[in-house]
């Protein structure tokens, strides 16, 4: 028998899941199978910080700041934390940057793999459950400080609405209404969105709202990066509608960020909400 033919596990019928196939065939490629010595490894690796998502009629928008920190050091100032998962969904991850990027790649491959093998895409709930399974497999690493906490959003083609899912490190999956935020600056971002969010915003207004929220997060959280005016580094923003997902071009985000900053020049705390 020649060794060069495709291994039998490739030809075996059964799973449509890439992660399951990888677990059988080459488990060392899975991010969650990494053996880490006991102790807290959390301080050794850069961490991604704040992610914000908000729905609007006909879609959903997600944005992430650009900073990765390692203790008190800014590890990277132009990291990208928001990724398209497939045509109609987007995933962003706060937590250990290296594991997060790998997990996003695995999740992207997982969705694409299913789509190619089955000839159809997973439902929105199916996608969010698969992500929960990947996070759950990472629990061992999370216990050692290498936690990965994603935020998942997408346009549900069945209900024709934007939907947001949040997770905890044990793989718990929670559907959020209207808006949500994860990461170190999430408390401030969520507080900001509470005052800014309305359920009749357009896509463009929603982008403005999430950029405002990230500004507020950066204002109060040292690990969240604000708009970098000298280097022209602005948040990564994705908008998903019935036409599919797209990343808002940097020039457009820069223009929105400039308007936010112009407004903050007058009122540093941002737009004031009405009292009643």
């Amino acid at each position: 028998m020649s060794d060069s033919r495709l291994p039998a596990s490739f030809m075996a019928p059964g799973t449509s899941s890439f992660a399951d196939f990888l677990g059988d065939h080459q488990p060392d490629l899975l991010p969650s199978r990494r053996a880490v010595p006991t102790g807290n490894a959390g301080d050794l690796a850069p961490h991604g910080t704040t992610i914000v998502a908000a729905t609007f009629p006909g879609g959903v928008v997600m944005a992430g700041d650009r900073r990765a920190t390692m203790g008190n050091v800014i590890a990277q100032r132009d990291i990208e934390k928001v990724f398209p998962a497939d045509e109609f969904s987007v995933v962003a991850i706060a937590g250990t940057a290296g594991l997060a990027v790998e997990m996003v790649r695995l999740f992207q491959t997982e969705l694409e793999h299913y789509e190619k093998i089955e000839g159809t895409t997973l439902s929105m709930d199916g996608k969010s459950n698969r992500l929960a399974a990947l996070i759950r497999a990472n629990l061992g690493l999370a216990m050692q400080g290498l936690a990965v906490v994603p935020l998942f959003a997408g346009f549900d083609l069945e209900t024709e609405k934007g939907r947001i899912f949040s997770y905890d490190v044990t793989g718990g999956r929670y559907e959020e209404t209207a808006f949500h935020s994860v990461g170190s600056g999430s408390l401030f971002a969520r507080g900001s969105l509470k005052k800014l969010y309305r359920d009749d915003l357009t896509a463009e207004e929603s982008v403005m709202a999430v950029v405002q929220a990230l500004y507020d997060a950066a204002d109060d959280d040292s690990a969240t990066g604000g708009p970098d005016l000298t280097r022209r580094i602005f948040p990564v923003v994705h908008v998903i509608t019935a036409d599919g997902g797209r990343r808002v071009p940097d020039a457009d985000v820069a223009e929105i960020a400039d308007r936010v900053i112009t407004g903050r020049m007058q009122r540093p705390d941002g737009p004031a909400a009405e009292l009643v």
């Binding site: 495709l6 490739f10 030809m11 019928p13 890439f18 196939f21 990888l22 065939h25 080459q26 490629l29 790649r105 695995l106 491959t109 694409e112 793999h113 190619k116 093998i117």
Partner: peptide, 12 residues
């Protein structure tokens, strides 16, 4: 299916 698996694994 074997081809999809091979390609996805290599790409990953």
């Amino acid at each position: 299916i074997a081809g999809v698996r091979l390609a996805d694994m290599r790409g990953y």
